[in-house]
Simulated scan of single mutants.
Amino acid sequence: MNRVTTLFGTRYPIVQAGMVWASGWRLASAVSNAGGLGLIGAGSMYPDVLREHIRKCKAATDAPYGVNIPLLYPDIDKHIDIVLAERVPIVFTSAGNPKTWTGMLKEKGVTVVHVVSSALFARKAEQAGCDAVVAEGFEAGGHNGREETTTLVLVPEVCASVSIPVIAAGGIATGRGMLAAMVLGASGVQMGSRFVASEEASSHIAFKNAVLAAKEGDTFLTMKQLTPVRLLVNAFYKAVRAAEARGANPEELQALLGNGRAKKGMFEGDLDEGELEIGQVSALLHEILPAGDIVRRVWKEFQEALQNPTDFT
């Protein structure tokens, strides 16, 4: 038992991130059944769809699970109402001000965790009443921090700044990566990209295979004028990069992004014109595995690395 497993009631201090278009009830329940904390990603779901996924997740696992809610999306109040009505025990919030909903969620008995990209925002999350924070480094995919602080630097900064548990994220996909984060002071890890390359992830197989094919340097942080995201290089990314290079303003970038670009890429498998959000650690991923096997493998690797931290044979 550690601070994260005690807080969530899980067997392992391993959290599956609530990635848009990847984290449905199948993935969340599989991770939770394996001893980690599975999260349903509400960011790509209409309210009625979120309710359906929560109910199916509850039917598929008796273990703790949660919902990730990006605060920048519309219908947040409806998502919050559904989370409360369905008695979701744990909520992760991101991409917004934690003060907006944390107090009300806590009053209803919900455990609240907020994702941060700086020590400053970690302190604000603690002041807002959050039970823990996810310190997500620059290496991560999806919504990212403008500060471009790496996990190696961010985690100890955040750990020194707050008294609540810190969960490390960004660039972690192995047991050795998990051990490194724990040595830096984290009480657990959150992994996104590793679980995109899982059998239960709802993302398109073409996107999963593109993730496996990614090499070092194939992802870049972009759209910092809007909400920063790390993307695989494709035609859409090149168009964004060209627009930024010529000084496009946020309105022009938003028009280029349009509606449904992430769905087109990650859920429908359009590898040219879709938005392909993934972390730098994709370069270390080489196979699609069942989510439960991922949890068990990472924990086994962690235990082995703990016993032999410098043994690379």
Rank of each mutant, 00 (worst) to 15 (best):
D131Q: 08
A132P: 04
A132I: 10
V134W: 06
V134Y: 00
A135C: 02
E139L: 01
E139R: 00
A140G: 05
A140M: 06
A140T: 09
G141C: 12
G142F: 08
H143P: 08
N144S: 14
G145P: 01
R146K: 14
E147F: 14
E147Q: 02
E148T: 14
T150K: 09
T150R: 03
T151G: 03
L152A: 08
L152T: 10
L154D: 01
P156A: 07
A160M: 00
V162E: 02
V162S: 06
P165M: 05
P165Y: 04
I167L: 13
A169I: 11
A169F: 10
G170Q: 01
G170W: 00
G171P: 05
A173W: 06
G175T: 12
R176N: 07
G177W: 06
G177D: 10
M178E: 09
M182T: 15
M182H: 10
V183P: 03
L184M: 14
S187K: 07
M191R: 03
S193E: 01
R194P: 14
F195P: 13
V196M: 15
V196K: 00
A197N: 04
E199V: 15
E199K: 14
E199M: 15
S202D: 13
S203N: 14
H204S: 13
H204P: 12
A206Q: 11
F207Q: 01
F207S: 00
F207G: 04
L212I: 05
L212Q: 04
A213H: 03
A213D: 12
A213Y: 05
K215C: 15
E216A: 15
E216W: 11
D218N: 05
D218A: 08
T219L: 01
F220A: 15
F220M: 11
F220Y: 14
T222I: 12
T222P: 10
M223Y: 06
M223W: 07
K224T: 15
Q225I: 13
Q225V: 14
L226D: 12
